[in-house]
Nucleic acid binder design. Structure first.
Lengths: 187, 187
DNA sequence: AATATTACTAAGTAATCGCTTAGTTTTGAT
DNA sequence: ATCAAAACTAAGCGATTACTTAGTAATATT
């Protein structure tokens, strides 16, 4: 009965996500989005409601990508070394030509802070909880560690990961390797 | 021969700095600035040229504040414990009611990335170098550590500090304490 | 083939952005 | 007292923001 869409939503949202990842939320305008996504503003609003809607779907898209390229690989290996490898994988994951884009979720909290939309924040928190649980899982391979120690070390690793995300934007590869090496020294 | 200014530049720039610190660069509009600084837009532009100029002076103002409240205190104490105290002091320093604002310099690099104005980036890099040298100085109290180890640990601490800045926005006090505690076990 | 429904293009909305300018007020030197 | 220089007020600049809408093109059902 009606005309068919000339684009697939999950394909154009991948492009939107890349744009948000490179530029952040505020700096990315709807005009930039329609250009990058290759569809008219009308279609953007028809498919995603508003700019926040595009961003929310972009966040979900990022999470899927990170799940596949980072978490799944972590879950398939064992011990603290697996987490260390996760840190290295993250740097590769966030690489963009010569620089690093950091983690989209970390970038978002850092940019929008408390004014982050609750739906978006909920997605971010869910992912962080996910990562933390995987870390706890890996840390638990060492049966000598008690629950309190593991919890403390998980908190430590979560903050360290945020640090890596931000620092990867301004420090060189050698400095980041130094950081990772020392970070895992006593775990 | 001429009319006197009704404000002191260093007083209004302190207020501008606080606003930038809370909101970031892009989110802070010139209209918000004139309101917060208590002077007309004309005066803003007469004194600081443009929005970037206000920001550059705000960065300098922040550096002075951090120098006085953080670096000077660090330089007056000894050993690795002094650096640990610096980390705790930073959390207090960046506290804003119930939340944390992070480090203005870290926030800026994280928000503006590679498109950060070179003058501003230069100020940021100078400060970071400053902090790093203070860390190296404190680490050198332990004469058993060779130069390479100290350098590596300094890199480690710099990234950890970035991590603390970002993480302080989303993690609670206990988690941050966990982080600091484990961080300094590696030294 | 006619029709109803949806997707498209392209122009336009009010609001806000950083910034400027015209006009007035205040000041110190003459 | 006069005058030039600087600082103020307030209105307004073009450009851009997120978002909408009027009009046209395409499609499955009848």
């Amino acid at each position: 009965m009606a005309r068919r869409k000339e684009y697939k939503e999950e394909e154009v949202i991948e492009k939107a996500m890349q744009l948000f990842w490179r530029n952040g939320y505020e700096t990315t305008s709807v005009r930039m989005l329609e250009k990058e996504m290759g569809i008219n503003q009308f279609s953007v609003y028809a498919s995603f409601g508003n700019k926040q809607g595009v961003f929310l779907e972009s966040i979900k898209c990022y999470k899927k990508k990170a799940q596949f390229e980072l978490i799944d690989r972590l879950d398939n290996s064992e011990g603290v070394e697996a987490i260390k490898q996760y840190f290295h994988n993250f740097i590769e994951f966030s690489k963009d030509n010569n620089s690093n884009k950091g983690c989209l979720l970390t970038n978002t909290v850092n940019e929008l802070g408390e004014s982050t939309d609750t739906l978006i924040m909920s997605e971010i928190v869910k992912f962080a909880t996910n990562v933390r649980e995987s870390f706890i899982n890996k840390l638990s391979y060492d049966t000598r560690k008690d629950k309190i120690t593991i919890d403390k070390q998980a908190n430590y690793l979560m903050v360290a990961l945020q640090g890596l995300s931000v620092a990867s934007k301004m420090f060189n590869a050698a400095q980041l390797d130094d950081f990772i090496e020392v970070t895992f020294k006593n775990l």
